[in-house]
Amino acid sequence: MSSLFEILTSDYGIHLAILIGIYLILSQSLNLTFGLGQLFNLAHIASYAIGAYATALLSTETEASFAVCIVASVALSGLFAITLGGIALRLANDYFSIGTLAFSAVVSALLINWKSVTHGVLGIAGIPRPVLGVTDFYQNGWFLILLLVFVVIVQAIFYVLMRGRFGRTLRALAEYEQAAATLGKNTSMIRNFAFLFSSAAAGLAGSFFAYYLNYIDPSSFSLQEMIFVLTIVIVGRPGSFFGVIGATIFLVLLPEPLRFIDLPSAYLGPLRQLLHAALLFGVVWWKRDTLFPTQRKV
């Protein structure tokens, strides 16, 4: 018991808890659109990147405060969602996913090639930790407490969204859009709002990611990262609030025992990806009949 407490309060335990916190925001926000709304949004990681870069640039270039960075990250990711939703939500089914993937690719290309702003593949270093009044969050323990406050707030907001009338309407749209429309539901507005909430929360996660690592580069926001978040939602059961929380903790911790196996680091990375891929494939195969139901039409 005492050894478990020691692990949890060690630098390593706190590091894992911070990762879990960031991924909890990122995966629960994807759960709203992809899990509940059946919107196969592959640009979620782009919202995460926009949030991270907004914080990185503002805090390093203008020394903006924590509040300004957080608000800017959330607002810019939200703006991205409005633009993306305005275009991609006009597309149906697979075309929608391809559209969001294209948006994600554009953001990725901008991060690499808009060197005067993003510093390209070199990334942005020296991102300072947040400071609130006389309290700074350079110690990971304090940073974890700050993050947990936001995690709890975001999870509470998403719980209300998913369990209340908003989530109910989103589920109705996912199952039978035309029937929902004839029940007085403004289908495009509901989906745009779902996109907005989801993307804004991903921006917040990105902001904390940038603050935590003090350094970001485009490789942190690759398609591989998108697949990892998607795996969390699928393993947790799309649309399940507590399932996704459990899956986030499970999947962040899953590859950790590999660290203690005596293997060269060149093998460890691919092995971790292999583990996630096998798990994703297994769950999709096992739940293939219920994971992606076909939308009913007149």
């Binding site: 589920r171 199952e175 039978y176 035309q178 029937a179 929902a180 004839t182 139901p293 009913r296 007149v298």
Partner: peptide
């Protein structure tokens, strides 16, 4: 509107 192929939400 009431649909021929049942407009209810079966998963709800």
């Amino acid at each position: 509107r009431v649909f021929q192929n049942f407009g209810i939400f079966r998963e709800m």
